[in-house]
């Protein structure tokens, strides 16, 4: 029972971690909270569902979903955030909320308000591990998430663009003086964050076999919480925050009350922040 809940928590924790990475990178570099992240997650999932229904190719569908998420992220940065740089922090927050309302109602118009099943039959075989039932889908989600996190870490530390992002996050003026194209760094950050959210959305659509225009709301909020929990701006923090949140939520639902499942994530958050006001890995600029 305990191991089962830990594994379920690990699966949702991985997804929260992917969303949290987007939040934390965008916050680390721009100091703004991209509230529309959950909607990008939803658009990624919907594009994958529609492409899959049209072509029947799951790889093509995933690629299309992630591509649409990237395009949306870059458009969002251009339209809703770039003109607002350097203003009172509430201004981009409201702009992001506006963008989020816009995107979720656009999705309701384009895809209809109802739940859609994922148009692809998965028959994952499962096996038992110390009494816990694990299926291949869960393993695949964990593996893909870990792979994406590894790629992101390598990208940030090894490539020129990745290093530029880290430099801009440290000090954007100094980075500009050293000849780094700051706007390009912002764009790539949004692109990466959105790609991760899109991938997370697609995996959750497969896992729960459902997509709906409001599917991004709670994962978006929990990803945000996970980013804060881990300490905003910290990449390992976002991953740890996501996993802690996912596991805390599943344990709370299993052992205390399942109707308060969504509350446990936030109760865990409040408790951690009271004890460690800067988050778990908190080293904030």
């Amino acid at each position: 029972m305990l191991i089962q809940q830990l594994i379920n928590g690990l699966v949702s924790g991985c997804v929260y971690a992917l969303v949290a990475l987007g939040y934390t990178m965008i916050f680390g570099i721009l100091g703004i909270v991209n509230f529309a992240q959950g909607e990008i997650y939803m658009f990624g999932a919907f594009t994958a569902v529609l492409t899959l229904a049209a072509t029947g190719n799951i790889w093509l569908a995933s690629a299309a979903g992630i591509a649409v998420a990237c395009v949306l992220g870059v458009l969002l940065e251009r339209i809703a955030f770039r003109p607002l740089r350097g203003m009172h922090p509430l201004i981009p927050l409201i702009s992001a909320i506006g963008a989020s309302i816009f995107l979720s109602s656009l999705a309701r118009l384009l895809f209809g308000p109802e739940d859609r099943a994922f148009p692809f039959e998965f028959h994952p075989s499962s096996f038992y591990f110390y009494g816990a039932q694990i299926n291949q889908l869960q393993l695949a989600i964990i593996a893909v998430s870990v792979g994406l996190m590894a790629i992101l870490t390598l990208f940030l530390n090894m490539t020129k663009h990745g290093k530029a992002i880290i430099a801009v996050a440290m000090d954007s003026d100094a980075a500009r003086l050293s000849g780094i194209n700051v706007n390009r760094a912002y764009e790539i950050t949004f692109l990466l964050g959105s790609a991760l959210s899109g991938a997370a959305g697609i995996m959750m659509a497969i896992y729960y076999n459902s997509t709906s225009p409001s599917m991004g709301l709670l994962p978006g909020l929990k990803g945000f919480s996970a980013a804060i929990l881990g300490g905003v701006g910290s990449i390992p923090g976002a991953i740890i925050g996501g996993l802690v949140l996912g596991i805390a939520e599943n344990l709370g639902a299993a052992y205390i009350s399942s109707s308060f499942k969504d509350a446990f994530a936030f109760i865990a958050l409040v408790l951690v922040l009271i004890l460690l006001p800067r988050g778990i890995m908190g080293s904030r600029k």
Partner: peptide
Amino acid sequence: YQDIFYGALLVAMMI
């Protein structure tokens, strides 16, 4: 289309 306009208006207002 109500919510779409509402969202777009918030963004436009902030810009």
